[in-house]
């Protein structure tokens, strides 16, 4: 798994590539535990996320809870069909906004 972080305006974009499973999820968890000062939104870009398990979902849910308690918006974007299926089945799609692309996600924050 590879994690890249970049800033677009007031949004922190975290790009996760590869497999998000029980062995890799602690690294993402650690990175998402801190929302940089001045950020008003957090976007998880999963365009190149090939796999997610319940361990990965756990980290995403935790980040969504942190964002909410910090009054920061959180969304995910660019899910592959197989990752999208897991989001649907876990009920996350009704809790966390899912956008087709990074552009639409960023536009939704403004």
């Amino acid at each position: 798994m590879q994690i890249d972080r970049l800033v677009e305006g007031n949004t922190v974009v975290t790009v996760v590539k590869g497999r998000l499973d029980s062995s890799s999820s602690p690294r993402l968890d650690e990175m998402l535990a801190v929302i940089p000062d001045g950020s008003t939104a957090v976007l998880l870009d999963f365009e190149e996320l090939t796999y997610i398990s319940s361990a990965g979902l756990r980290v995403v849910l935790k980040a969504a809870k942190l964002a909410r308690s910090s009054s920061v918006a959180l969304a995910v974007c660019s899910l592959t069909p197989q990752v999208h299926e897991v989001f649907e089945v876990s009920g996350f799609s009704s809790l966390i906004p899912i956008h087709q692309s990074r552009e639409t996600a960023l536009a939704s924050f403004t």
Binding site: S54, K65, R68, S90, I96
Partner: peptide
């Protein structure tokens, strides 16, 4: 809701 959802137990 997001606040009510427990972390874990999804596998």
């Amino acid at each position: 809701t997001l606040d009510e959802r427990r972390i874990g137990g999804l596998g």
